[in-house]
Design a binder for these strands. Structure first.
Length: 523
RNA sequence: GGGACUGUGGGGUAGCUUGGUCCAUCCUUCGGGGUUCGGGACUCCGAGACGCCAGUUCAAAUCUGGCCAGUCCCA
């Protein structure tokens, strides 16, 4: 039974019921009052640890509840969009970063770090760029008690911090390519609602910046970045789209932008990264030029590759279920949790055995947690399922006797592990878990798309729509209006859900130069 | 930028309309004791909150104003 607050009070008195705000009512729309649900006096509903909102009907509430209950982010800091990384969540972030570093360094990129503050005059050099970020930068205008002569921008991204220095670093063709990245925090003054990991004001940002000899080499670098991302996404078990954004939606200052998008239910998508080709757009104003092999001068062509903790949000949103988070093994704060099941007779033996198992797995390089808490085993199962640990090992009297451990992975697959082969069998279970996680994600991914051939099909769509688009901005905007979202752009490669080439443009019905494109509601 | 709404222990909430019966309810959480322990244990004891600052009043969680924080809608 649902009603408004005032009605709730009156009715509550009449009926001797206690009105209780349902913890997970859908988000309030407009100025309307929250919904109230009645429960019998004296029997308030239990709000158990992992009694999560329904992921399908209330995805935002589900997401926020999981992030909080699984101890991934603490959002009580007191500044909108600036959250605290608690120990458990930070472990996941460190694992995420480890994969980014591993894959980008495999392509010959090296780590650097630039300052967080950028002088206003440097920030303003590239006109499109400053226009794109003007409304969302934080300014530092005072040092101590005095006003600064040159105000400073807290980096929203680091082009304008790096490129004046790049101009000094790059002098000869022998200095190229320059491929460097940094993982730092950046700041954007978001005015819209913020969400942990998905939209924040202090962004945990991975950014690669490169300088190349010419346009083709820069195009190659874009490809190389996309390949690197494919490997990263493999570790995250995340199927994704690489989409060339329409011109009106590209990064401020870019020649073109290839965005990485994932579907996250209904027609909604989440951008989890982007690769940009800058051509000479920044190297001209920042004078990043070099002496060629033949003695002439040329401007470098630049690229960037950006990722953030949104990836973590994407992993939670895509893999999580009604029991909580589900982490792919490479991201999981702990890959294995060991739950001892003490018995009256074998308590000490079980204690000793589980310690030894934990030691062995740790020595084998696995992130393992031995849960020696006082809770009963069942409570521990729920907690670690909520927190998304891929594999749980149970060791009790029965296991001890049989020299084995019972294993249950986060997707519910049960098996038995022989203690003598513990390390290899656990590694095997984790690989099988990742494969199954990816398989499930791919099934859901494919089901997220469907072709639309008429604008009327876009309204209220429950899928990301694949449409024929002639490439004109006017038609693009018409499509965006029809779906109440955005035209994501043209896929790199063949899109899901299609057979053969596109028909006529969904908006203007022209059939020349038509490409497949995605229409969706980005969050 | 314009508008609407919300703020009570660590989390979720009751109480506010009609100020007093509130040293603030219930669930969860946390600390301690006991009995338990193969899927969220039970029990006893204890801890912990009215966003901030003013104002009205004999009396403010409750009314008024400002501020801060958050949410939603529209541009």
């Amino acid at each position: 039974m649902q009603t408004t607050r005032r009605m709730a009070r009156c009715l509550g008195r009449l009926l001797r019921l206690t009105p209780v705000v349902d913890r997970w009512t859908p988000p309030r729309r407009g100025g309307r009052a929250p919904y109230y649900t009645f429960i019998l006096l004296g029997r308030p509903s239990l709000a158990p640890m992992a009694d999560l909102p329904d992921k399908r009907t209330a995805p935002i509430d589900w997401y926020l509840a999981v992030v909080e209950a699984a101890d991934l982010s603490d959002k009580r800091y007191g500044i909108k969009g600036m959250n605290v990384w608690p120990r458990y969540g930070f472990r996941a972030r460190r694992n995420l970063d480890r994969i980014l570093v591993r894959e980008i360094e495999a392509t010959g990129s090296e780590a650097v770090e630039f300052p967080a503050l950028i002088p206003a005059n440097e920030f303003a050099k590239e006109k499109e760029h400053i226009k794109g970020f003007d409304a969302q930068v934080y300014w530092v205008t005072r040092g101590g008690l005095s006003e600064l002569d040159v105000p400073l921008v807290l980096r929203p991204t680091s082009e304008t911090a790096m490129y004046p220095i790049f101009a000094l670093w790059v002098r000869s063709h022998q200095d190229l390519p320059l491929n460097v990245y940094q993982i730092v925090n950046t700041f954007r003054y978001e005015t819209k609602t913020t969400r942990p990991f998905l939209r924040v004001r202090e962004i945990h940002f991975f950014e690669e910046h490169t300088c190349q000899l010419d346009e083709d080499r820069a195009t190659d670098r874009v490809r190389s970045n996309l390949d690197a991302f494919a490997r990263m996404a493999g570790a995250f078990c995340l199927p994704y789209l690489a989409v060339r954004r329409p011109d009106w939606d590209k990064f401020a200052g870019a020649h073109y932008t290839i965005a990485l998008d994932i579907p996250i239910g209904g027609a909604r998508t989440l951008q989890i990264g982007s690769v940009h080709h800058y051509r000479e757009n920044f190297s001209v104003p920042y004078r990043i030029s070099y002496e060629t092999a033949t003695g002439g001068r040329a401007n470098v062509h630049q690229t960037t590759f950006g990722l953030s903790e949104r990836l973590l949000g994407a992993i939670v949103a895509v893999h999580g279920d009604e029991r909580g988070a589900v982490f792919p093994s490479e991201i999981a704060p702990y890959e294995v949790v060991i739950v001892p099941i003490p018995t009256a007779t074998a308590r000490a033996a079980i204690e000793a055995a589980t310690r030894e198992l934990a030691d062995r797995l740790a020595r084998a390089g696995l992130r393992v947690f031995l849960d020696r808490g006082e809770e009963r085993p069942g409570a521990k199962y729920f907690r670690w399922e909520l927190r998304g640990v891929p594999l749980r090992l149970e060791v009790g009297g029965r296991e001890l006797e049989g020299r084995r451990a019972s294993a249950v992975d986060r997707l519910g697959t049960r098996s038995t592990v022989a203690l003598e082969n513990l390390e290899t069998e656990v590694a095997e279970r984790l690989r099988a878990f990742d494969r199954e996680l990816m398989r499930r994600a791919q099934v859901a991914f494919r089901e997220s798309f469907s072709v639309a051939t008429d604008l009327s099909q876009l309204n209220g769509s429950t899928r990301v729509r694949v449409v024929g688009w002639c490439g004109s901005e006017a038609c693009g905007h018409e499509i965006e209006k029809a779906i109440d979202g955005a035209l994501l752009g043209v896929p790199e490669g063949t899109p899901p859900a299609v057979e053969g080439p596109p028909g006529p443009c969904i908006a203007c019905r022209r059939s020349d130069g038509v490409r497949w494109a995605f229409a969706a509601q980005p969050i």
